[in-house]
Nucleic acid binder design. Structure first.
Length: 548
RNA sequence: GGCCCGUUAGUCAAGCGGCUAAGACGUCGCCCUCUCACGGCGAAGGCAUGGGUUCGAUUCCCGUACGGGUCACCA
């Protein structure tokens, strides 16, 4: 068959050649060893953990090597696209500190290798499509959906392998007249790759994460161009990553089965294939068994889930970092205050297998991240969460900013900071008693004590409390009250002979705690009282005395 | 079903032919001049399995089992 005739028939308007495009998109001038990679999500309106895992990996590799990271929107499937999804995508990636050097932005494209939205690149793909037809390595196929499912059904019946290949590839070797006739009849067509591979052959391949792999050659005549003229992922991947000079492709390992086809394509097109990093999936426990996190079943896959739960961005980022490079944890312990990007990320540390998503671990990481934040940062984080998810909390915290901050400052800073919050939703139950309208007097007194003693202890405290005292003096006074009532002021003495006392200074402190905070647990009472102020402390203590 | 990937404690994981097989989370215990939150100390718990190769295998090879992925005009 004369491929020239066919090529012109199929792509009459394509005049450019691959050489023209190579001239249009010359290599970037980057230092030796610089990595160029991309994030290439499809705009489904749903940004998930997997996107982020892949994004962080690409981002670190590019920027640590002095290279370039770009964002390419894979919007080849018009059917699935959700309106406004591109914006959501760009904004949440930015939110999670994935910074792009070029690519799609909310306002349009930035960079010299665009367009960065695939649907706008149709003319580029067609140049290569025509080239493949010319080389006899692609052909049109006019099968309808029904015909294809018939083929599939027959294959099932015959227990043959599925797919459009060999004798099943009914349009593969049709004479030109048939094609012309179909074209003239206005039948829709797709462009298929003419595979010369065989499943009898194996190809060797080295993945940067998985290591040496042996894969079966591809013998399927995959679709290159859909009937709307827009490429499939495979074809777009080859063309785009060539023209954009991608050096490393990071993607999920669900792509491994189609990798042989991709390699075939790069060869057919005369492209140098990039290095690949195939990441194992994030899994979760589902009853007894593990399975890949699925976006239909698992809300925790969506980034928005973490925001609603009150995890700071930094927490999710650091958790994912520990999953990607487990030595990150050790590094973080040794460098508690260093910015995350001073950590030396290495793809060599990445696990070839999938990992189970560990919510408990996320919480732990998050506690540490939050405990390292300064007051202003925590305050901002809480507000950011509260304004969308707990407006009542937001109103309380903003009513008196410095008061709120003084609460959040308790136990913050220093070598052993408090770790009360894993998520911002933990904040309200932690500090509600600082607000009078949230505070409730409790009658759940510590058990095992005479009411008279509790009352006397509270009165004794009120008689001597002075907010000007430092914590040492403050506590000495409480000890004095304890002693006066037959409670041990010395914990050691108490432990050696508990029956010699009515209780200890710990119990006296508990009386105060219950009176002042309405609960059994609280941060350090000295700090609490300092923040509450003398009048409110006394009011609460007196209110409790009334009930005794 | 075909093809492919994977398998170190409940989980995340170091390890890369010779180690009493790190560490972290979780769990449990003890300690810590006021509880909690921290912090400290300690405990339980592991190389899926059968064959090789080797003086020696968690580490290399093959099989089995189990887990996962993929077989679209979706990415």
């Amino acid at each position: 068959m004369d491929t020239k005739i066919l090529a012109d028939l199929l792509f009459p308007n394509v005049t450019k050649t691959p050489a023209d495009l190579d001239a249009e998109f010359p290599p970037r001038s980057l230092p030796e060893g610089a990595i160029v990679s991309r994030m290439a999500p499809s705009p489904t309106g749903f940004v998930h953990l997997g996107n982020l895992v892949q994004g962080i990996t690409s981002e670190r590799m590019c920027h640590q090597s002095g290279g370039t990271l770009f964002l390419r929107v894979e919007d080849t499937d018009a059917k699935r696209e959700v309106p406004g999804a591109v914006q959501v995508l760009i904004e949440s990636l930015k939110h999670y500190s994935i910074h792009f050097d070029e690519g799609a932005t909310i306002d349009g494209d930035a960079g010299n290798y665009g367009p960065y939205r695939q649907r706008q690149r149709a003319h580029l793909y067609h140049v290569y499509a025509k080239q493949l037809v010319l080389q006899g390595e692609a052909y049109p196929c006019f099968c309808t959906e029904e015909e294809l499912s018939d083929i599939h059904a027959k294959q099932e019946a015959e227990k043959a392998n599925y797919g459009y290949f060999g004798k099943w590839a009914v349009w593969r070797d049709r004479p030109l007249e048939d094609i012309k006739a179909a074209l003239d009849a206005g039948k829709p067509w797709v462009l298929r790759y003419r595979s010369t591979g065989s499943i009898e052959n194996k190809i060797k391949f080295t993945d940067l994460i998985k290591g040496n792999l042996e894969l079966t050659e591809n013998d399927i005549d995959h679709v290159l161009l859909k009937s709307d003229g827009i490429p499939t992922y495979h074809f777009a991947h080859a063309v785009d990553d060539h023209l954009m000079h991608t050096t490393h492709v990071v993607r999920g390992d669900e792509w491994l089965p189609t990798l042989p086809f991709h390699l075939q394509l790069f060869r057919a097109l005369g492209f140098k294939p990039p290095k690949y990093l195939h990441i194992g999936p994030l899994m979760k426990m589902d009853g007894e068994s593990k399975r890949k996190l699925s976006k239909r079943k698992d809300p925790e896959l969506a980034l928005t889930y973490y925001r609603a739960a009150g995890f700071p961005v930094q927490s999710v980022y650091e958790y994912l970092m520990t999953v990607l490079n487990s030595n990150f944890e050790d590094w973080r312990r040794a460098n508690p205050d260093a910015p995350v990007d001073s950590f030396k990320f290495s793809y060599k540390k990445m696990n070839p297998a999938g990992s189970l998503f560990d919510a408990a671990k996320l919480r732990d990481v998050s506690k540490n991240v939050i405990s390292r934040m300064d007051v202003d940062t925590v305050y901002a984080e809480v507000l950011d969460f509260a304004k969308d998810f707990d407006i009542d909390l937001y109103d309380h915290l903003t009513a008196d900013e410095s008061y709120a901050k003084s609460i959040l400052a308790i136990g913050r800073g220093g070598k052993k900071p408090r770790k009360d919050f894993a998520v911002m939703a933990d904040v309200k139950p932690y500090l509600d008693f600082f607000y009078d309208d949230w505070f409730t007097v409790t009658d759940a007194y510590p058990e095992g004590f005479a009411k008279e003693d509790i009352k006397a202890a509270l009165q004794g405290f009120v008689a001597t409390y002075d907010p000007a005292d430092d914590s040492g003096v403050w506590f000495d006074k409480i000890k004095a009250v304890a002693d006066g009532l037959g409670f041990a002021s010395d914990m050691k003495a108490y432990k050696e002979n508990p029956s010699a006392f009515k209780g200890s200074v710990a119990d006296v402190s508990m009386f105060l705690r219950v009176a002042v905070t309405g609960r059994l647990n609280s941060p350090d009472m000295y700090s609490v009282m300092q923040i509450l102020g003398r009048d409110r402390v006394f009011a609460r203590i007196n209110a409790m005395i009334e009930t005794l």
